[in-house]
Nucleic acid binder design. Structure first.
Lengths: 198, 198
DNA sequence: TTTAAGTTAGTGAACATTCACTACCAGTAA
DNA sequence: TTACTGGTAGTGAATGTTCACTAACTTAAA
């Protein structure tokens, strides 16, 4: 699916609105104002509102897939890979906080079936990359195998989702990357292979 | 703030709608249909829609506070306390899945400032109980002190939020309690006091 | 007789979408 | 050069629908 330049501009404007005023603010009127043209002009570029949102989510998904693959491909150590992957995410969301809202917006989840699927797809993409790294780390005995890779991935993903949510709730005030790296360090401590001292 | 019987019926109906069709489905019309009376009758019991949502969230918050306090008060071991607290949560949400949607709905977050605060209050209540248990566990050397209580709480809360989200996304199909206990076991393994084997 | 809890029948505002129409540009044929 | 043709990207007005909310009335119980 090709995305034209003007379409990209529109989904970026839609993203900005999401950041500023959430899913409720994403109306055709607001979108047209932000684009500087009439509402009706939107329909020159998209079939309807749902297609705008879908295009945004699908763009985000493919973009994230290639970004994650790229950011870890030259790194050997699983531990460093994990750090690089999340740093890449932090940097992206710092630059594009609106896409964060897109992923976390439960409001979006309810809009339509295809939007729901698009969001699940994004979560799946992230999960896929995370799992690969964890499995490699377990093979190399750098991560504990007391838990399955799936279970470790769940805990890591959950922690990061909450991290992102708090950033959003704070109004994007604290340093996402700084605090995120601290979280990553903490998680790495926990998932080290270890023996109970008891 | 006293809640009358009829008001309670209304916020329960509102909760059911949230479960079935999300925040977008929670309209005065749908709510009136579910209650079996006209829209205007709602305004006999509440000032407006915002007050309905606020009442629901505040009711949930105080209820959760006392439930959490009660479910752990007779237990000594922090580990068992943690298990009991989360089991209590699971049972509650199993019985009242609609309230789950209330907490997780980012859509709600955008509605108004006071609703935002009410949701933060609920998160704060949970955090408060969790922190207490973790601090006790660290003092008694049952949990690691490689991370601060705050940091451990973050990871635990994040994991459970994701767990709940997945339950919801699955359409409430899998056994929340069973899978949740497995997650709890996993988390307890990770936060055990431990030495690196390296 | 007052009050609580309901009714019907509306309100204006906001919503996504569609309509007929236009300005502008590129290519092409006379 | 000029005139025709088609495509792209816009306009403003209007559509039907849904939204939260309100005014005025009814009924029945305390």
């Amino acid at each position: 699916m090709e995305i034209k330049e003007r379409q990209l501009e529109i989904i970026e404007a839609a993203g900005e609105i999401l950041t500023e005023s959430g899913i409720a603010g994403l109306t055709t009127k607001n979108l047209a104002v932000k684009m500087g043209f009439a509402e009706s002009a939107l329909y020159r570029h998209f079939k309807g509102k749902e297609e705008i949102i879908l295009t945004m989510l699908r763009y985000l998904s493919t973009d994230m897939d290639s970004r994650l693959a790229n950011s870890t491909k030259d790194i050997e150590s699983p531990e460093e890979k994990l750090k690089a992957a999340f740093n890449n995410q932090f940097e992206f969301f710092k630059k594009n906080p609106h896409f964060l809202v897109a992923i976390f917006s439960d409001g979006l989840l309810e809009e339509s079936k295809s939007i729901n699927e698009a969001i699940l797809q994004i979560m799946g993409t992230k999960r896929k990359h995370l799992l690969q790294i964890i499995q490699q780390g377990q093979k190399q005995k750098q991560f504990t195998d007391a838990l399955s890779a799936d279970e470790l991935a769940h805990i890591i993903m959950g922690s990061f989702r909450l991290h992102m949510l708090q950033w959003r709730l704070s109004g994007f005030t604290f340093d996402l990357k700084l605090k995120g790296n601290k979280l990553m360090t903490n998680l790495l401590k926990l998932i080290q292979p270890h023996k109970s001292i008891l």
